[in-house]
């Protein structure tokens, strides 16, 4: 095992952590595990690919376009998922709606980039540096730093801002929150938008390094979900720890044993953790449905 594998693991981990955070952001007010969340990551990667690799317009443009497009996708996704869930009333509505949304976005990306294997733009900062004999790519370091910043920022937002407190109240009981005058409907839309932007930024950062094919959204959702469960759905800190564990487990096992055993290790860990600690390693139980 090379020390690079650990850096790779931390990098992949920060991407998964961002997805895990986004999943938790949507889950808290809605009690919905959004299977379409990974598709936003593909959006980020696709925008980066389109603007940086094809249009040669630079990363600043890509970032702006990503954020705007992701916000729109978040609003759209809220409509696509929450409307059927409200109208249906079935206890399985959430999973069917989110899977359907995932299906729709996946096929759209497939149609748009059917001749592209990997959405891979040039890195934001090319090259890397060496520290104590371990080579680190700038892009990897950037992703890790951004992930940490987003986590800290969201944590602060949750605790300090009025909206953050409203979101936490809604997470507790959306019915009571309505009675307290909290605009739950707006909170839900905002949660979808914030989650989408965070996920898209993760895709933007990951695209130059990780293999992202147009149809791989679901696998990122599942890895992000694994991270969320390990960390305990809810806290940004849990998402961060969970993401890092998943990323490290994945790359380290892969570099030691090789092949797709990394995936196996991650999913086996997910199964074991769910069985032994039904509420995650660090979190409160995910009481829903």
């Amino acid at each position: 095992m090379s020390p690079e594998a650990i850096i790779d693991g931390l990098f992949a981990g920060s991407v998964y952590a961002l997805v895990a955070l986004a999943l938790a952001i949507v889950f808290q007010p809605t009690r919905i595990m959004n299977f379409a969340q990974g598709e936003v990551l593909i959006l980020g990667a696709a925008v980066a690919y389109q603007i940086v690799a094809l249009e040669k317009m630079g990363w600043a443009v890509a970032l702006v376009v990503t954020i705007v497009a992701a916000a729109l996708m978040g609003v759209l996704m809220e409509r696509m998922i929450m409307l059927p869930v409200r109208l249906s009333g079935s206890r399985y509505a959430w999973i069917i709606a989110t899977l359907a949304a995932a299906l729709i976005f996946q096929s759209l990306f497939n149609l748009g980039y059917f001749d592209v294997d990997a959405l891979r733009p040039d890195p934001v900062i090319a090259g890397g540096f060496e520290i104590a004999g371990v080579s680190v790519e700038w892009q990897e370091l950037l992703a890790i730093v951004v992930a940490l910043a987003v986590m800290a920022g969201y944590d602060l937002f949750l605790r300090r801002s009025v909206y953050g407190r409203a979101i936490r109240a809604t997470a507790h009981s959306s019915d009571t929150s309505v009675l307290m005058g909290i605009p739950v409907q707006r909170i839900v839309v905002i949660s979808f938008v914030i989650a989408a932007v965070i996920t898209a930024v993760a895709g933007l950062l990951a695209a130059p390094v990780i293999f992202i094919a147009p149809a791989t959204g679901l696998i990122f959702t599942i890895k992000g979900f694994t991270a969320a469960v390990i960390g305990g759905v809810g806290s940004p800190r849990g998402a961060l720890i969970g993401g890092m564990i998943v990323g490290l487990l994945d790359t380290v096992v892969r570099s030691v044993v090789g092949g797709t055993v990394g995936n196996f290790a991650v999913f086996a860990a997910l199964a074991v953790i769910l069985i032994v600690f039904p509420s995650g390693l660090f979190g409160k139980p995910m009481e829903a449905h």
Binding site: I95, A268, A271
Partner: peptide, 28 residues
Amino acid sequence: LVSLRATYLYFGMITLAANLIVIEIGRE
């Protein structure tokens, strides 16, 4: 049997993990 304690949502997630494991076993 391994997921008897799991409630509704978690049961779904364990089956999801199990599904992925079956696929990985098939690949390996």
